[in-house]
Design a protein around this nucleic acid. Sequence first.
DNA 1: CATGAATGAGAATTCATTCAT
DNA 2: CATGAATGAATTCTCATTCAT
Lengths: 198, 198, 198, 198
Amino acid sequence: MSEIPPQLTAIERTRRAQIIEATAVCIAANGYSAASLATIAKQAGVSKGVILYHFGSKDTLIEEVLKHVYVLADAEIGIPVRAETTPKGLLNVYISASFAFISARRDYVIALLLILADGHAASRIADGAHISATEDIKNILEYGQTEGVFRAFDAGEVAKMIRTLIDVASYTLRDDPAADLSAYAREARAFIQAAIYP
Amino acid sequence: MSEIPPQLTAIERTRRAQIIEATAVCIAANGYSAASLATIAKQAGVSKGVILYHFGSKDTLIEEVLKHVYVLADAEIGIPVRAETTPKGLLNVYISASFAFISARRDYVIALLLILADGHAASRIADGAHISATEDIKNILEYGQTEGVFRAFDAGEVAKMIRTLIDVASYTLRDDPAADLSAYAREARAFIQAAIYP
Amino acid sequence: MSEIPPQLTAIERTRRAQIIEATAVCIAANGYSAASLATIAKQAGVSKGVILYHFGSKDTLIEEVLKHVYVLADAEIGIPVRAETTPKGLLNVYISASFAFISARRDYVIALLLILADGHAASRIADGAHISATEDIKNILEYGQTEGVFRAFDAGEVAKMIRTLIDVASYTLRDDPAADLSAYAREARAFIQAAIYP
Amino acid sequence: MSEIPPQLTAIERTRRAQIIEATAVCIAANGYSAASLATIAKQAGVSKGVILYHFGSKDTLIEEVLKHVYVLADAEIGIPVRAETTPKGLLNVYISASFAFISARRDYVIALLLILADGHAASRIADGAHISATEDIKNILEYGQTEGVFRAFDAGEVAKMIRTLIDVASYTLRDDPAADLSAYAREARAFIQAAIYP
DNA sequence: CATGAATGAGAATTCATTCAT
DNA sequence: CATGAATGAATTCTCATTCAT
């Protein structure tokens, strides 16, 4: 938490970002187990050695990919959400920002899900974050229930469902990169609203 | 589809079933990439050679695992569902049978999802089946809409959502094998009903 | 100590012996750090994989080399020594058997010394044995002192010296494989006798 | 031998000494094969590049370590020895100066022995020096024999033994850096004297 | 002079697969 | 049918070395 900030040089930040992106692209394209260092290096247009020079190990690289997605998610979902105050607003923005995020950051989100699915050791680090994503929804739901805006239901379980209904959009994009999420997003929102509004 | 049935001997069928189960157990326990032939062989209590003798290659084995899950699913979900006639009955039974299946066949279902997540070549073979699982729900939904029992919505997209809400239960079991799905199942059913009934 | 005896098959014992010998040859020829699995495999005329198939890891292989040398040493030094009863006889036989062993098992002995010099992890296992080799000499010396056959001196330190005077013959053989140890052996024995007899 | 002296700047000499020392420390601490340029650089508190800038290659660095030890040895053993004139005095001083040297220059001496044990290419350069160390003893012994102060024995072989009895003290220090050599030194001197005086 | 960045050869190891028995 | 033995390709990682800055 309170580690010494590593203070990376500009060139290092660039390389790391480049490699992290290449990693996400590889994993999203062909699955976790097909993403070897050689593949990633080729995708990034660098030598294998560079990756280990900058990240020390593949495990660390994978960890950094996860962290990167969470940072992006916080910027692109967390910030707009925190601007809202009403339960309805919070939930609406959460859902639309999430779909926007998935569309914009396709490879990163797919990579995240595939890394977690693989049960990679780095998942532990991510687990907290992933749980907290569900937790955020739960908090919104409970807030809405307190305010009487939402119905009575088990907020924890329903949060899980909403989380899932959002996540699955990534898999759609994985199978068909050109897919248009808007139809799904519209229906999903309606589906969710029908289920939680009185 | 209409190939000549290979006519396996009894002992052969036993070995294959044993190996397929061991494979599912391994994948479910530690993820797809940790499931090497050596690991599977040890789990099954046989030698690596015997696996390749019976399946020819690891890819084929994985394919057979997928096929096996679909056969089980058809027996334990498809058959009870086909006994129903009303949209409500169809959907109800589909959902409960699915959750029952997930609980009863934990390792097989988790293995299936992880194999699909890994983007394994065998997925192609499975894709048809997976799509058809969504297709089945879609048919039920459209039937219910025709009958006026369900609301108006995009049956294809909603089918995807229902499929997902069911699938996610497996991941819960993966993270916590002792988890009790009943609370989730109850909430999911309510959630779905709220969304599709007028 | 009382582990389950591994019960190796004949073919396995052969391969292991072959690989262990090749390892000793490589290390003796070019030093520990030049002895990679690839080099050893080439020397043994097998593939790299075979080595790991039989030994599991390079560390284990190195350990087995050490163990093998100790087994040989016990057979070729320990047994003849234990046939003696007088201090003089014990020491004489110990020294001649040791030189004979070094001549006959050149590569094994040099490999042993180089592995220990490298500070390999396997050394720990060997350390006991190496110490006990010094300990054996110490026991002989103390026995001889009790009997009044040897002079008064610090048996522990002198044992160390005798051990060293023997070991150094291996280094001579390393530098010049064709070297004739007999002159050195004769002088060493005289040197030692002059130092310990009253 | 008689090359043009490269005329190093003061700062260059400092850096080189610093790196040579760091190298000796690393090798002595964890063995030759654990002493990578990275390790040495960290120990010296410089970057890897600076090492290669000053020495050109790792091989050259190792060579320079060896040379440095021989220079030190000449200063700390050779000079006091050359002040003696009698065989007895020469041998006595040689032995005590050697033990003093080993105690004072622990890491350098251990590094030397480990580099030689590893069979490093640089050893060739050192071989001459090492032989000459034995040669020096041989000369003393032959001088003493001519003078009738020492017994008749093969001076070459006995020189080898004395050399060894001295060297082994380093290994003792390696295994136990806090070891007190004085007991061993005393016994070794007695041992040697018993063997060479009439 | 010194460094950080990058490289590529070579290290140990894993793994699916083949084959003789 | 089944196994143990063997292989070779691929994987992660280490390391000495090069080079632009």
